[in-house]
C-alpha cells in the first residue's frame, strides 16, 4: 500500500507538472496535424490519403509524445537534484521508474488516439480498425518509446544533451521504421537497421490493426515490442544503478 501511494503520487505529480500543461498538450495535438498536412501537400493527394498515412501518424505521435518530455524532465530533475528525493524514497527502483515513465506512457497513448479520432470524425471511414489489438499495440509502442526516453535520460547529464540524443534517435526512425515509406524501398544496406528498431514493429502492427496491411504477424510485432520494452527498461535500470547509485 505504501509503495502504491508513492507510485501514484509520483505519477500524478508528473502528469500535473509536465504532461498536462497547455504547451505540452498543444504540442501533442499539433504535431500529428502538422505531419498530416505536410504529407498531404507533399503527396498531392486528397483527404482520402489520410487513411494510408494514419498508421505512420499514430506511431510518430506516440514516439514524440512519450520521448520528448520524459528524457528532458528526468534529466532536468537529476540536474537540479530533486531526483535524489525519489531515489531516497523507500520504494523499489523498478516501481519508481515505472511511476516516472507512467505519465509519458499515458500521454503517448492519448496522442495516438488524436490522429485516429480526427480521421474517424472528419475524413476517413475506418471500418477495419481492430480496437483491442490497436490499443494493445499503441500501449506497447508507448511503453517502448517511454523506455527509450528513459534510456536517453540516464545516458546523458544535461538537458540539451537529452534533446540532441533524442532527436539523433528519433528522426532517423521516421524514415527507417516504415512509417511513411515501405522498408523494402530503403537501400538494402539500411534494411537490417530498420529491424533493429522497436518502432518498425510498432508501425507494422498499427498498420495491421488500422488498415489490415501488416507485413509481419501481429504476434511477432507485439513480441518484438515487448522484448524491446524489457531490454530498454533493464538497460536503463542497470545504468541508473551504475551511474546514479554508484
Amino acid at each position: 500500500m505504501k509503495t502504491w501511494i508513492a507510485f501514484w503520487n509520483i505519477l500524478l505529480k508528473d502528469m500535473r507538472t509536465y504532461y498536462l500543461k497547455p504547451p505540452n498538450v498543444s504540442w501533442g495535438l499539433l504535431f500529428p496535424l502538422v505531419w498530416t498536412g505536410m504529407f498531404l501537400v507533399r503527396s498531392g493527394g486528397g483527404l482520402d490519403d489520410v487513411a494510408a498515412l494514419l498508421p505512420g501518424l499514430v506511431a510518430v505521435s506516440v514516439l514524440f509524445g512519450t520521448t520528448s518530455m520524459l528524457a528532458v524532465t528526468v534529466t532536468f530533475e537529476k540536474k537540479h537534484r530533486s531526483f535524489e528525493r525519489l531515489l531516497l524514497a523507500p520504494i523499489p527502483l523498478e516501481v519508481l521508474m515505472l511511476a516516472k515513465t507512467g505519465g509519458a506512457i499515458f500521454f503517448g497513448m492519448v496522442n495516438a488516439f488524436v490522429p485516429l479520432g480526427l480521421a474517424a470524425l472528419f475524413v476517413a471511414d475506418l471500418p477495419l480498425v481492430a480496437w483491442g489489438a490497436f490499443t494493445a499495440t499503441v500501449l506497447l509502442v508507448a511503453v517502448s518509446s517511454a523506455f527509450l526516453g528513459l534510456f536517453i535520460a540516464v545516458a546523458v547529464s544535461e538537458v540539451f544533451e537529452a534533446q540532441t540524443f533524442s532527436n539523433f534517435l528519433r528522426f532517423p526512425m521516421l524514415f527507417l521504421c516504415g512509417l511513411f515509406f515501405p522498408i523494402e524501398r530503403l537501400p538494402a544496406l539500411l534494411q537490417p537497421l530498420s529491424y533493429a528498431l522497436p518502432l518498425t514493429y510498432g508501425a507494422d502492427a498499427i498498420r495491421g490493426t488500422v488498415l489490415g496491411a501488416a507485413t509481419m504477424p501481429l504476434a511477432l510485432d507485439l513480441g518484438a515490442l515487448a522484448a524491446f520494452c524489457a531490454l530498454l527498461f533493464g538497460l536503463s535500470l542497470r545504468n541508473i544503478r551504475r551511474r546514479w547509485i554508484a
Binding site: W4, I5, A6, N9, T17, R85, L88
Partner: peptide, 19 residues
C-alpha cells in the same frame, strides 16, 4: 524541492513518497 509546486504541495508530495 520542486520549484513548480507550492510549499504545501511539496510537503504533501514528500510525505506520499513514504506512503
Amino acid at each position: 524541492l520542486y520549484p513548480e509546486l507550492t510549499g504545501f504541495e511539496n510537503l504533501c508530495f514528500c510525505a506520499a513518497l513514504y506512503g
